[in-house]
Design a protein around this nucleic acid. Structure first.
Length: 432
RNA sequence: GUGCCCAUAGUUUAGUGGUAAAACUUCGGUUUGUGGUACCGACAUCGAGGGUUCAAUUCCCUCUGGGCACCCCA
């Protein structure tokens, strides 16, 4: 900040970088998506959970892992007045797992299925479909290592996306294996890359040191070539992980879900074991497709966070901002959003004073109205009503205020009926 | 975080080294008892700060914000 002139300088009115206001119709898109996703989740047996936006920083660092960009570069960390080191959640899983452990949920029938929705924060450079405050709808299935759980979660994810308007979805899927599988695989992979180190770009050389798995999804053409001959993880899976992966794929076949095994698919969060998957935005121009949902299994996370028991689990995060922006998103209107069919107009001071009473009567009858109480002139109000496209207006003037009645005007035919307030409810219902 | 491009009213856009036009929107009025028209009027310290200049919205620099690619990811 270079406002070294004076402290009283008027501040720029601006939302922080990468954060925006969600207003009106856009808000309804988010809300509509959430309601639909929630509905689907409930049908599949998920129950709601909401965890704090802030957690202890250590919850995320131990869960997601040092050496990941999400932790090292992108986390909003802060010190409270009391001296606590907190951080704004960059993803949802760590918080839900923390809640599971803290609330002793291991003592309930397993698995526990949760869904959640809310803002996540990552100090990233903004770009299309990438915000510093973004919204995720997430599913977590905790306490079972069965392959059917993986399939259930993927299926639920796809159903949610399809309900939002997505077609021709393809699941990219891979298995990271169990811990030992991964260790031996990484060792072999590193050895392979060391042999081909000359062909690797400086960036990939760096990756090789910090996180060799990431070299697999490099975009560098030279690296892609080298990756052709790289050992693949699926053939390094131990028997249990191999069996698990096979079962997951069988389930997907059974459900008719199209998938691609992508041996280069590795995810950025280090807690994943066994199944990992990603779903890309369908029908995007080549190369520009964004990931709209991604997740995987995290059988080791619970212990890392301090649980005494293993809690094998599977989760997914769905990027709501990205979905709502796609051309195929069908406007899912939230239930609370009833478009008013009636515009309320008042004329004269007496009527204005009684207006709120009439509106309250309508509210109790569940009839939403628009109004412009702040305006006086009838023609001005009619003009606004016209512009907003409502089919009916209610006109409430001096005379009506005295008679306790109201004029209902059909905006198309311009016909009018005089209706006593007591009968207004039934009259409006009859119009439909 | 790196590179490239961009920034004028609420919105979409003109324009110029001498403090800015237009359309739409909004608000007010002609018109507090019947609308979609018309007319009149109002709304921009030209993203912020600094520099060059007699003079900068226009040229230069920095910052901020946005877009795209990379990094990374939802």
């Amino acid at each position: 900040m270079s406002s070294n002139k004076s402290e009283s300088k008027k501040q720029d009115i601006a939302s922080p970088k990468g954060m925006r206001d969600i207003i009106g119709d856009e808000y309804y898109k988010f809300q509509g998506f959430f309601e639909k996703a929630q509905e689907v989740a409930v049908y599949y047996g998920f129950t709601p959970i909401e965890t704090p936006i802030l957690e202890f920083e250590s919850t995320f660092t131990t869960a997601i892992g040092d050496g990941t960009d999400v932790i090292d570069k992108e986390m909003y960390a802060l010190k409270t007045k009391g001296g606590d080191a907190l951080a704004m959640r960059p993803e949802g899983t760590a918080g839900v797992m923390r809640a599971y452990i803290e609330n002793g949920m291991t003592n309930q029938p397993q698995p526990l299925l949760f869904y959640y929705y809310g803002p996540m924060f990552r100090h990233d450079k903004p770009q299309r479909g990438r915000y510093r405050q973004f919204y995720q709808f997430g599913l977590e299935a905790m306490g079972s290592e069965k392959s059917i759980i993986d399939a259930l979660l993927i299926k639920a994810t796809i159903t949610i996306l399809e309900e939002a308007g997505a077609k021709d979805l393809v699941v990219q899927i891979n298995s990271m294996g169990d811990k030992e599988d991964r260790i031996s695989y990484v060792k072999e992979l590193t050895a392979y890359y060391k042999k081909h180190a000359n062909g690797l770009s400086p960036l990939d050389q760096e990756r090789l040191k910090t996180n060799p798995l990431r070299v697999l999804d490099s975009k560098d053409p030279a690296t892609i070539e080298i990756n052709q001959g790289a050992p693949d993880i699926v053939s390094h899976l131990g028997t249990p992980a191999k069996k698990h992966f096979k079962e997951v794929l069988e389930c997907l076949d059974q459900m008719g879900i199209s998938y691609q095994i992508n041996k280069n698919l590795v995810r950025g969060l280090s807690y994943y074991t066994r199944t990992v998957f990603e779903i890309e935005e369908p029908s995007a121009e080549d190369g520009t497709a964004l990931t709209i949902a991604a997740g995987g299994r995290y059988d080791l996370l619970a212990r890392q966070l301090g649980s005494k028991k293993d809690v094998p689990s599977m989760g997914v995060g769905i990027g709501v901002d990205r979905i709502v922006e796609t051309p195929w998103f069908k406007d899912l209107a939230p239930r609370i959003m009833k478009k008013p069919k009636v515009y309320f107009i008042q004329v004269g001071l007496d009527a204005k004073l009684k207006s709120l009473n009439v509106i309250e009567i309508l509210r109790k009858a569940h009839i939403p109205v628009m109004q412009a109480l702040s305006k006086d002139s009838l023609s001005a109000q009619l003009a606004v009503a016209e512009k907003s496209g409502v089919p009916y207006t209610i006109i409430f003037g001096q005379k009506e205020a005295m008679e306790n009645s109201v004029i209902v005007r059909n905006m198309d035919t311009r016909g009018q009926d005089c209706i006593p307030v007591s009968e207004l409810h039934t009259y409006l219902k009859s119009l439909k």
